Computed example of a mutant assay.
Amino acid sequence: MNIQESNRIEEDLSLKLFIVISRAFQSIKKRVEEDIKCYELNLTEFAVLELLYSKGDQPIQKIGDKVLIASSSITYVVDKLEKKKLIERKGCLKDRRITHATITSEGTEFMNEIFPKHKRAIQEICNSLAAQEKSNMIDQLKKLGYHAYAM
């Protein structure tokens, strides 16, 4: 096999890998969204609520980076979760320009109830892979993601 053939095979494999990853992600995301919808939340609302549940109070301005949503959407999502009484805004005592989002006691109770169910749903989605396969895939996808980010 010459260098051109080898390069073409690499290109074809890379394209196929991209397509497989994209389709797998779409299928997984669809199932996760269906699970979250059962709790009368959308994916973005759940992501913000889960962040506050797991990591505690967060500056509203930083939430978008942490849950991978546009900062322009954060205020809308925070407003919706606040109307549902799951989170609240609190001003920062050290810097009045900063406002934190905080999970309420109702929000904590809600997450205590639904989060274990959500984890089981994710586990069911990933059930076709053995533990070692999951671990290997995590390592490989991180490697791919870090490489793409560094380009």
Rank of each mutant, 00 (worst) to 15 (best):
G107I: 04
Y76I: 02
I36H: 05
F25Q: 02
K94W: 13
E106D: 07
F46L: 14
C38M: 12
Q123S: 11
I98K: 10
G91I: 01
Q26S: 09
E82Y: 00
A101I: 06
L68S: 08
V32T: 09
R89V: 03
F110Q: 13
Y53D: 08
I138Y: 05
E133N: 07
N42E: 08
S71P: 03
E33A: 14
E133M: 13
G56L: 04
K94H: 14
S72N: 01
F115G: 05
I63C: 04
Q140I: 10
D139S: 07
A121L: 04
L17P: 06
K30F: 10
T75P: 00
E40T: 07
K29Y: 01
S14Y: 10
D57V: 07
K30A: 07
L15T: 15
Q123Y: 00
I103E: 05
R89H: 02
L17M: 12
L17Q: 10
R97P: 03
A70R: 09
F110K: 10
G107W: 03
I28A: 10
K83D: 15
Q132M: 04
E124I: 05
K134P: 00
S54R: 09
K84T: 08
L86C: 00
I138V: 08
K119Y: 12
L86W: 02
K37C: 08
Q140F: 14
K85R: 11
E113C: 01
S105I: 12
A130N: 12
K134F: 01
Q123H: 01
T108F: 06
N136A: 13
Q61V: 10
C92T: 09
K90L: 14
V78L: 09
